[in-house]
């Protein structure tokens, strides 16, 4: 992710938060408000992660084709991409043989991550970051 892309992403996040804030003004339902607050927190968290990754771990850019080589088979490392960041799961105990509960390494697993871990970013915290995904 380079500088322009980061600024586009951040603007996108700002727009999302702004929209959510407007939604907050238009509802009185406490459950709906809680949901919106959660969404806002998630967006803020995402920006924090993006900034942290940008400053700390700007290492390598992967295309999807490059990433697909790192699927954990035949002694290859196992890499996965979540929210545009590429993580190394080769030595993560829950990723035996580059597979994890039906998911296979070497691709963009953002949708699976959202489905199973409900956007719980703490699951990714201890994984080493090796680069970013080129869209």
């Amino acid at each position: 992710m380079d500088k322009e892309e980061l600024s586009v992403e951040l603007k996108e996040c700002y727009k999302n938060i702004f929209n959510l804030k407007n939604m907050l003004n238009f509802t009185q339902c406490p459950i709906k408000r809680m949901q919106i607050e959660d969404e806002i927190l998630f967006e803020i968290n995402k920006t924090l992660y993006m900034l942290e990754d940008y400053t700390k771990y700007r290492q390598r850019e992967f295309t999807i084709e490059e990433l697909s080589k790192y699927d954990g088979s035949l002694g290859n490392p196992a890499y996965i991409a979540v929210y545009g960041i590429v993580y190394d799961v080769s030595n993560s105990p829950v990723w035996g043989g580059g597979t994890h509960f039906g998911a296979t390494a070497g691709g963009d697993l953002t949708s699976q991550f959202e489905k199973c871990h409900k956007r719980d970013l703490s699951k990714l915290k201890n994984l080493p970051i090796v680069g970013t995904l080129k869209v």
Binding site: G75, P93, V94, G96, G97, G98, F101
Partner: peptide, 10 residues
């Protein structure tokens, strides 16, 4: 046999 897909850790 972790790299061969061992599920022992889970």
């Amino acid at each position: 046999m972790f790299k061969l897909g061992c599920r022992g850790p889970v």
